[in-house]
């Protein structure tokens, strides 16, 4: 069900942090900070991701010129077991914490939960909330696939987990860009087991969310400046177009997928495109939000897409479930 915020929270500031491949990509210049070593000064990949989360939140706080103690709630998540990148990297800010897991849909999920919190606690007094999402190629490969130095070929549909993160500060009293509507996603069984083709495991969930949204709101895809999915990648995005066409709501030119935007298809050996929860978080932060602030876009739908699986669930033969929570993000009317 679509929920329209009575007091739409605004996105006050956002920051994107990335690694080597992200810096080389077409959005490289737009990132707030990239560490080509991917280590962020840390000894392990897991700790590097913690530092990535810390850096992203610090950058967002710095841009807004606010102190961590002024933040009412922090909603954050990542791909590591038990979301340790978020807890390890962000505990020292001392902000009340809601840890979230929605696989690669966590960016939308965290913004959704933070927005609900701000809207529910709305009062005369201005409140701030933070949403942080990260992923790291090193920690994700180790956890979900194989050792980093292990020699193997990636399938053409396989996606590249982004070493990236995004942090967002939300303001209960609004900002230039507002989160006006939200709709949690349903978990859709993709029926497939192929963890080298996550895009197609998530596309049915994105189609489900979009169909439900358009049906309930009575709107059409062309009513928006952009319809943005998280990390379906090259194959998953084609699949979503196909599924939407079948559903009678074909997507037009304004459909974009963050997984196809983070890397350069020609210059980089991307295979299926980018994935990871930092993918949609960083692309929203360094591409879509600046465009909205400038006024290029007035109204977008943003759905990070998550593949709900673990290395164990796949080995035990459980099909991958997809999820795609949805946000409507609008530029404040002037």
């Amino acid at each position: 069900m679509i929920h329209t915020f009575r007091h739409a929270p605004g996105i006050l500031t956002a920051a994107a942090v990335g690694g080597y491949e992200e810096r080389r990509g077409p959005l490289g210049e737009a990132f707030d900070l990239c560490d080509p070593s991917g280590r962020f000064g840390q000894k392990t990949w897991e700790m590097a991701e913690e530092e990535l989360a810390r850096t992203a939140l610090n950058a967002a706080l710095g841009k807004a010129g606010v102190n961590a103690k002024d933040i009412s709630v922090l909603c954050a998540g990542d791909l590591q077991n038990q979301c340790c990148a978020s807890s390890g990297g962000l505990y020292s800010f001392g902000i009340p914490f809601l840890g979230l897991y929605g696989a690669c849909s966590t960016c939308t999920e965290s913004l959704l939960v933070a927005s609900l919190y701000l809207s529910e606690t709305y009062s005369e007094k201005r409140r701030l909330a933070a949403a942080v999402t990260t992923s790291h190629n090193g920690s994700a490969e180790r956890q979900f696939r194989q050792p980093l130095e292990y020699g193997s070929q990636r399938a053409p549909t396989a996606q590249w987990t982004a070493t990236a993160g995004g942090a967002f500060l939300l303001d209960s009293h609004g900002a230039d860009v507002l989160i006006t509507e939200c709709m949690p996603g349903r978990m859709i069984n993709s029926l497939i087991l192929d963890s080298a083709n996550m895009g197609c495991a998530m596309a049915p969930a994105a189609a489900d969310s979009l169909c439900r949204y358009f049906e309930e709101s009575g709107k059409k895809p062309v009513d928006f400046d952009a319809i943005v999915t998280g990390d379906l990648g090259l194959v998953g995005a084609s699949m979503l177009r196909e599924l939407m066409k079948e559903a009678g709501i074909p997507l037009e030119e304004n459909y974009r997928d963050c997984g196809t935007m983070l890397y350069d298809e020609k210059e980089q050996d991307v295979h299926g495109g980018a994935s990871g929860c930092g993918c949609s978080a960083s692309v929203l932060s360094c591409f879509f939000l600046p465009k909205m602030v400038r006024g290029d876009y007035q109204d977008i739908l943003f759905l990070s897409t998550g593949a709900l699986l673990s290395a164990t669930s796949v080995q035990q033969g459980e099909a991958i479930k997809g999820i795609a929570p949805l946000l409507r993000i609008q530029r404040r009317k002037t």
Binding site: P156, L191, I192, N197, S238, E242
Partner: peptide, 18 residues
């Protein structure tokens, strides 16, 4: 089955290794 149907769809659009 629904699964086979979806797999056929994937086969139609997914690139294969050279």
């Amino acid at each position: 089955s629904q699964k086979e149907e979806y797999e056929a769809k994937i086969k139609a659009i997914a690139p294969t290794s050279p």
